[in-house]
Amino acid sequence: MKRFIYIVLTLMMAGCEVIPYEERYQPVVNGNSERCHVLIEFTGFRCVNCPEASELAQTLQETYEGKLVVVSMHPASNPFTQGKYDYTCPAADSIYRLMGGDASTPFPAGNVDMKPFEGEWFANSSQWPTMVYEAMNETDQPKTDGLKTCYWVVEDSVLGVQAMPDGSVNDHYYHRHVLRSACDRWEDVQVPDGSQYEHLRLIKLTIDPTNNYIVNAYESAFYDAGLGD
């Protein structure tokens, strides 16, 4: 019996590691990925924690300038997007449901390159920097054969309504990089109805058709791509 008590006491003493304050945060380099990655931000105008997550996504994009594209998706299947105001598009909902999203998925949720992270398709915003960092530092060589192309049209600075963290409603909130449409062919790319042409951007994606993972992305303004009027 004494031996049993000693073993338990020893394990208890060993079983706690306190990290001193000065050792908790270690600066990291930003990564050296040669490809451009896509951070998909699933959001909704009724989600009070989404504006903070959107700020985080913006900071990540600035940190990895030229190597990270952020796209906001408002999927109709989630109650955070349902109500008087509509920022949804069918493509956002298709992608959301393809990943297994439904009405119970908590928002804000994020995904990088349409790949699962830690076995989950949707990560909460505190995991986004880790997801992006790991994508920027991945060592696996991407597939180069048999890839398909896809085009996403996003609209920046959509003036609208958003529930805020303090419980208020902001009637003059700018929704950033909102997905408006998606298509597989260049000739099908169009200016979405009701969108501001000068705010539109086109993202050309290279996708692995075997698992729908995004391999690379290229973003440009609509007028630079030679589209529209």
């Binding site: 306190v18 990290i19 600066p27 940190t63």
Partner: peptide, 8 residues
Amino acid sequence: GMYRYRVP
């Protein structure tokens, strides 16, 4: 900036 968290 970006920091790596040392976790227990």
